[in-house]
């Protein structure tokens, strides 16, 4: 694959998914796309790109998927889940005690581990028995990832990263060498293939958005646009949870960071109101 091929691919991916591909990612592109090339009967990535230039939609879709699917694990960056469990959830349960409804969105759900980690925490609280409705939406650009997430079937390696053994026994059932998340938890999550560049008004006003390690793939303009729209779809007192190493500094004034927890944000207006209360 030469420089012109790379530029063509980078442009295609930017248009289709907002993915911002830097030149130094060439080895990653080669390694991710070789299996795709082989699947379509090509020996090299360059031949795949040549075919792509003729505008084959199925190939373009497969290439986008291969370049945007992310590795994940259960309870990845444990502190974010501890903050959700120990701080966000108790506050939300108090604030929403009237309507008894929670709305949570995992944007960039990959193979489902993040959404199921939240489902496990929520399952412990037995909220439906107490009359609560929990909308747990999980979306990803990759339809292959969403299909896997819906299956809820994980390898022995995957269930041993970040997942305490008690949770494995409590929330999974063994199927041969693999482990499947309990049907009760699978039913809690509504998985859907979705592109963050498209409108997400259909999600309504959300209480918590998990959008971890997704925005890092966007160029600054796209990132700012997506963040503004995330702000619009979040309840005024809601939370935005980004990856532990992500920051909105310089990208948006719609959000303000929370406490000492890296990656957790609230709406800026909310943060200002709290400061005013503290000052008054």
């Amino acid at each position: 694959m030469d420089g012109a091929d790379f530029d063509f691919l980078a442009d295609l991916l930017r248009r289709r998914s907002g993915l911002h591909l830097r030149q130094d990612k060439l080895p990653l592109v080669e390694s991710r796309l070789l299996p795709v090339a082989q699947r379509f009967g090509f020996r090299e990535v360059a031949s795949l790109v040549a075919e792509l230039r003729h505008g084959r939609e199925t190939i373009a879709g497969a290439v986008t998927e291969a370049m945007t699917t992310n590795e994940s694990s259960f309870f990845r960056d444990k502190h974010a889940f501890e903050y959700f469990q120990n701080t966000i959830l108790p506050m939300l349960l108090a604030r929403r005690a009237g309507q008894r409804r929670l709305r949570i969105w995992c944007a960039g759900a990959a193979n489902g581990q993040e959404a199921y980690s939240l489902a496990m925490i929520l399952d412990d609280l037995r909220l439906p028995e107490a009359g609560w409705t929990v909308d747990l939406h999980a979306t990803d650009l990759s339809s292959a990832a969403i299909a896997r997430a819906k299956e809820g079937l994980y390898s022995q390696f995957e269930v041993q990263r970040g997942l305490p053994i008690q949770r494995l026994v409590r929330h999974f059932a063994q199927e041969g060498e693999q482990w499947r998340i309990a049907q009760r938890l699978r039913r809690m999550v509504s998985f859907r293939q979705f592109n963050l560049l498209d409108s997400f008004g259909w999600l309504g006003a959300l209480d918590v958005i998990f959008c971890r390690n997704v925005l890092i793939y966007f160029d600054m303009t796209t990132k700012m646009r997506v963040i503004d729209r995330l702000a619009d779809s979040l309840a005024p007192d809601g939370w935005l949870v980004l990856g532990a190493t992500e920051s909105l500094a310089g990208a948006s004034s719609a959000f303000a960071p929370v406490d000492d927890v890296r990656g957790v944000y609230v709406r800026a207006a909310q943060a200002n109101a709290r400061m005013a209360r503290l000052a008054g």
Binding site: F157, Q160, R161, I165, V169
Partner: peptide
């Protein structure tokens, strides 16, 4: 690596359970 063994181990006072084969990441986790 079956639930019966895991449950028995936890009941006898084990705190965690690693199913072989393991790697560095699993031990750390």
């Amino acid at each position: 690596n079956d639930v019966a063994h895991i449950t028995e181990a936890l009941g006898a006072g084990a705190s965690e359970y690693i199913m072989k084969p393991f790697d560095r990441e699993i031990i750390e986790s």
